[in-house]
Computed example of a mutant assay.
Amino acid sequence: MFIINLNYIVPLEELDQHMADHVKYLRKYYDKNVFVASGRKVPRTGGVILALAGSVEEVEKIISEDPFHKHKLAEFTVTEFLTSQYHPALKDLLS
């Protein structure tokens, strides 16, 4: 599993101009069972996405499609972690 951490580097007004496309991007990867959860940080300085993927390279390829990445609106970092415990409802996604 991967944590994708976004830190916004432009004013929120500029970011919001691309929000609809960002949400379409998120939905695409929810439909493919790659994204597990996502949301804004509090305060609104960025966001977090939990993703299931086979490699960091796969995650980086997926990130490259994000409008926030394409338009250089946010910086992205990826952290891989091994799930040792998880909610039973995630069993099918993680297997």
Rank of each mutant, 00 (worst) to 15 (best):
F2G: 02
I3N: 09
I4Q: 06
I4P: 06
N5I: 03
L6Y: 08
N7M: 11
Y8C: 07
Y8E: 12
I9M: 08
V10T: 11
P11V: 05
P11A: 09
L12A: 10
E13G: 02
E14Q: 15
D16F: 14
Q17R: 14
H18C: 09
H22N: 07
V23M: 12
V23T: 05
L26K: 00
L26I: 12
L26C: 04
R27W: 10
K28W: 06
Y29I: 03
Y30V: 07
N33S: 14
V34R: 00
V34D: 04
F35M: 03
F35S: 04
F35H: 01
V36R: 10
V36P: 09
V36M: 13
A37C: 06
R40W: 03
K41V: 07
K41C: 00
P43V: 09
R44Y: 11
T45P: 02
T45F: 01
G46N: 00
V48P: 06
V48D: 08
L52G: 05
A53V: 08
G54L: 00
G54T: 10
G54H: 06
S55K: 00
S55G: 07
S55A: 02
S55Y: 03
V56P: 01
V56K: 15
V56F: 04
V56L: 13
V59A: 08
V59H: 06
V59S: 05
E60D: 14
S64W: 07
S64H: 05
E65W: 01
E65I: 04
D66Y: 08
D66S: 07
P67K: 05
P67W: 05
P67D: 04
F68C: 09
F68D: 00
F68A: 10
F68M: 01
H69W: 13
H69K: 14
K70A: 02
H71A: 12
H71W: 08
H71S: 11
K72R: 15
K72E: 14
K72F: 09
A74T: 07
A74Y: 06
A74I: 04
E75Y: 02
F76C: 11
T77E: 09
V78N: 10
T79S: 03
T79C: 04
F81N: 02
F81R: 11
Q85K: 15
H87D: 10
P88Q: 13
P88H: 12
A89R: 04
L90F: 13
K91H: 13
D92M: 11
D92W: 13
D92G: 03
L93I: 11
L93C: 08
S95D: 15
S95Y: 15
S95R: 15
S95F: 14
